[in-house]
Each structure stands twice: as structure tokens, then as C-alpha cells.
Design a binder for these strands. Structure first.
Lengths: 206, 206
DNA sequence: CAGTGTGAAAGTCTTCACAGCT
DNA sequence: AGCTGTGAAGACTTTCACACTG
């Protein structure tokens, strides 16, 4: 569908549009406009129109966008017209909290299992999910065709488990460990480090 | 110190440099170069040099950068030469996990207290911190001169508590609720929504 | 020589502004 | 009349490449 190749930064905004549209739908709206979405999101309306134009023409001239229809299109574009199974590697503080996060299910994702190397945790269950030995990760990933992993182990261990996951077939990683993972180009990595955000903001807090 | 005004995107990278340098220091390195840092971070060396040049000249020609010295300079620039007290609003899943996160203390931040509106939680303690009534937030923020808050309440409640926090003097917010907060321009807001990252990545997972 | 600091060039992203559709 | 979709302009960011320094 994309005629030109789509800038990554544009792709990154689509989930934002999805989120705003979902909120609108939940509040009963059936139509919206680039202007309304823009106010909601705090960005410019032209940007939204241009971003969407990379993927097709979804609006009705003079009327705006049908919320349900645009939602469906965006979901298809982002491959959210299916459910993505995920594993979490690391069953400590962060891993447990992420496993218990109720926000995944309704937005396209399902946490299947946790992995750890701590014998005290292996075999227990967290948030209703089994904790397996990290050595069984490759087998599990292959058996269940897992493409997505979240890494929530200490920084020292992160690179090694990331490589293990990738060698088993994982091709996208959401990394909570505070370091930069170095992985083959075909693997997508996104990072979450709250401290980075805080340190960014303190710059402005004279 | 900044002669020109510094692009925000440059400021956003400084914490990354800080993190890499800290890791280098912990592994015993005393000198590094823009090239080495660049490999570590997966970006270009020229970018690092140019970013740093907005703030001064920190390198030694032909030698590189003294790790400890550059760390100190960056900390000063980001105002991390002090400890920032923070509050967490919302003592549910996410708030509790964030409160228990051990990664703040050594990177310039200290969680002081949690706030919630659930009578069952108020008065209890989580991760060694008191949970207070959210109605006492303004008083607490003023009394302790809090500038930073993390919001971890359900989406429906987030805008209201953000406004409450801001009216009491909070000027930077790290928002874990999955919506866009609309606040006065002088308030800095950064958002963390793991699902956004996942949805970004699934685009590329054919 | 190895590596910084930096103008200038190249590249990318956002915003403008308007033709065209309903 | 109101709003989309989009070239073209403008703004911003990254990268290049080299004079300069210890």
C-alpha cells in the first residue's frame, strides 16, 4: 500500500493516532477531523493529514474521518489485526509489573510466559503466568512462534539474553534494561528508561 | 553557558551519554573518544561531538574525553548535581512498581511519597513509602518543594490529577497514563506507554 | 597522528497554503 | 463552507570533511 517508503517517525505516530481515535470512539464519537485530532494530541493538523497520506486516502472531503473506519485501517497497517504473543525475560520487579499490566490485552498483545534464571522463581507463577527457566527460552520461542520479547533483566545480563532471544527467532525487543543493546539490523529494538526522561526534564528545571 | 539555544533533541541525548559514560566508568575506563561512545550507543561520532559543542569544549585534542570530567560536566548541565525529590500519584500496579524501582536513587532522583484516592491504600506503605490521600497532594508538594511528579493513575483520572499537581507547583511530569495531557506551556511532560512502542514495532513484523 | 570542534552541505521533517471534492 | 490531500517552502538535524591541537 505505501507508494513511497514511509519514514520511521511517521510510523511511530500512528499508534498515537490509534490511541486518540480509540478514546474518541469510547466517548461515542463517530466522526472526527485532522484538526480535532491535532488538538487532542497537541500537534499540527497538517502533520496528521500528511502522515495518513503515506498510506492512502482515508478522509471524506468536507467531512473528516470516520472514526471506526480509520481505526480499522490503522490497525491493519500496524498489523494489529491479529494478537501478538510475547514473552517477558526477567521476573523481578519490572518484569512482574509488566506481566501484571492490564493494558496489553485490549491493544493487540498477550503476555504468554516469563523467563528467569533464579531457581527460586522458576516454577512459580506471577500474574497468572508460569515462570520458566531462561534456558528453555529458545525452545519456547520456537514452539510458539514468538516474535516479540520484553527484556527486564539487570543491565549486565541484558545483552546476553537479547542475543539468546534473537537466535531463537525473536525479531522485536522492548528493552527495559538501562543500556543500549547491540543486535543485528533486522531486529527492531525500542527502549524504555524512565530515568532518561527525568534527566531530560531536569535540564529545564533551572 | 549555552551560547546558542540548544535544540531539545540534543538535550534529550545527553542522558544517554551520561548513561554510557557511567557504564564506562564502572568498567574502569578513564578516557574515551567520541568514536568509542558512538559505537557503544549506535549513533555517529560527529553527532556526539556536535551535541557536546553546544555546551563547551570538553575534549582533549588527540586524546578524547576524560570520563569522570565529562560526567561531571554533563551532570551539571542537566542539573543532576543535586537530588530531585519526586512524588508518585497513583498507588496501583504501575505506581507501586515505579516506587519500588531501585534505579532512581543512583541517578539523581528520590521518590518521597505516593498519593492515591483509594481509602484502602491511604495510610499503608508501599516499598517503604507512605501512601497519602491525593487531596493532601498540594500541601505536600508545597511543603517539600516538589517539582517533579510521576502520574500512574487510570487514563480517566490523569488529566485532573495532573492539573492538581501543576496548580501546587509541579513543573515536570512523567506520565504513565495512556493519554495526552494538556497542560500549560511552562510544564514539561514526558510520556511512557509501552504499548506505543510495541505497536510501532509490529509495523515492521510483516 | 589520533581525535576534537565546527562551518558548510546534505538530508530529513514539518508547516504552509491552496486546488479540489462533497 | 468545510475539510482533505499534497506539492513546495521552510525549518530543523545529521553528516561530512578538514583546520587545528596536544
Amino acid at each position: 500500500m505505501p507508494a513511497k517508503t514511509v519514514p520511521d517517525i511517521v510510523v511511530a505516530r500512528l499508534p498515537l493516532y490509534l490511541r486518540a481515535l480509540t478514546a474518541m470512539q469510547n466517548s461515542g464519537k463517530t466522526f472526527t477531523s485532522s484538526k480535532e485530532m491535532a488538538q487532542w494530541l497537541g500537534i499540527g493538523s497538517a502533520q496528521i493529514r500528511k502522515d495518513l497520506s503515506y498510506f492512502g486516502e482515508f478522509g471524506k472531503q468536507g467531512k473528516g474521518y470516520a472514526v471506526a473506519e480509520l481505526l480499522e485501517k490503522l490497525r491493519k497497517i500496524l498489523h494489529l489485526d491479529r494478537e501478538w504473543p510475547m514473552v517477558i525475560i526477567g521476573a523481578g520487579h519490572i518484569g512482574s509489573a509488566v506481566a501484571a499490566y492490564p493494558g496489553f490485552a485490549h491493544r493487540g498483545f498477550r503476555v504468554c510466559a516469563l523467563f528467569d534464571n533464579d531457581r527460586a522463581k522458576i516454577g512459580t507463577s506471577i500474574a497468572g503466568l508460569c515462570v520458566y527457566d531462561v534456558r528453555d527460552l529458545p525452545e519456547y520461542v520456537r514452539a510458539h512462534n514468538i516474535r516479540l520479547a520484553m527484556i527486564a533483566v539487570p543491565a549486565e545480563a541484558a545483552q546476553a539474553v537479547a542475543e539468546l532471544a534473537v537466535s531463537a527467532g525473536v525479531s522485536a525487543i522492548l528493552n527495559y534494561a538501562p543500556l543500549n543493546l547491540v543486535l543485528p539490523d533486522h531486529v527492531r529494538v525500542e527502549n524504555i528508561d524512565p530515568v532518561l526522561h527525568l534527566q531530560h526534564m531536569t535540564y529545564y528545571l533551572g
